[in-house]
Design a binder for these strands. Structure first.
Lengths: 144, 144
DNA sequence: CTTAATGTAACTGACGAAGTTACTTTTGCC
DNA sequence: GGCAAAAGTAACTTCGTCAGTTACATTAAG
């Protein structure tokens, strides 16, 4: 598992916690579901705990659980918790300010990037963790 | 200039071509405006030529110019020309399929990511290169 | 035929993220 | 009290991607 999968893995983690219905789930169990190292999971969970989406219980028989209901958590909340501030490549982009184009291009692009980012997050905001959870346990036709 | 600034630099390139009003502009001149190496510029231009946003003229007194009007180029066109297919971290994310969550999470996330991407691109589609060009040459109050 | 340009391949270096090891701290449970 | 299990975290190793660079073949104007 290489490349930036922080968000995808984080949604997986929270979906797993929802699936386990409030139990204190150790990082090793989540790591088995994601198929990665427990430390990777704990690092992402640290961000999710900091933003109060998840609560952590140290010590024996400890573990992680959702800090609120799955309805109250949107994918945008998760995205913002674990993704770094989007730079869109504007940091480390230092055009020649002696050129009329280079002097202005950054200030022109910045608000455009902010809107593009907002457009993406608006779509994520429409999906709750509960919706993801629901799709995990689909209605089983014919079964009551 | 480090990190993924392909899109920002590409908009800069096209804005520069618009600014030069149809002249055949060599990559070295664009590189001076962006403050980077001409090869970096030519690599991005190769993608822009392939998608027919820009035309290239080889040989002495050759260079690059817009293949169409700035009104006809949206920032989404530029984005799609130079950014690789968005994986959103789903490639290289291989959860444990023996777990009920791991088995389904990818197919749940995929359509959500597609919508998020579309939300972002819709905002980029609203901005044309002409709009960027206009902001480069603002009305100069008092000047006729 | 010279010169200036594109088109590309090959290499280097920086950076970020995943993965791993190892250790400290905390806490339930016997 | 002491053991076991867990979070928390630091340090290190890969690994992939991209910007940057050098070098060279190809092309076309004058």
């Amino acid at each position: 598992m290489t490349g930036n999968s922080r968000f995808a893995v984080s949604v997986h983690i929270l979906a797993y916690l929802a699936y386990r219905q409030g139990a204190a789930v150790p990082s090793a169990e989540i790591a088995a579901s994601v198929d990665t190292n427990p430390v990777v999971i704990r690092r992402l969970l640290a961000a999710l705990v900091k933003t109060r989406l998840v609560s952590a219980q140290k010590g024996a028989s400890g573990g992680f659980s959702l800090a609120t209901t799955a309805e109250n958590i949107s994918l945008r909340d998760i995205y913002r918790a674990v993704e770094p501030e989007p730079s869109h490549g504007l940091s480390h982009f230092s055009p020649n300010t002696k050129c009329p184009v280079g002097a202005k291009i950054q200030s022109i692009l910045h608000p455009i990037f902010v809107k593009a980012q907002a457009g993406m997050e608006a779509e994520l905001a429409r999906v709750s963790l509960a919706e993801v959870h629901r799709q995990l346990r689909p209605v089983c036709p014919g079964k009551k």
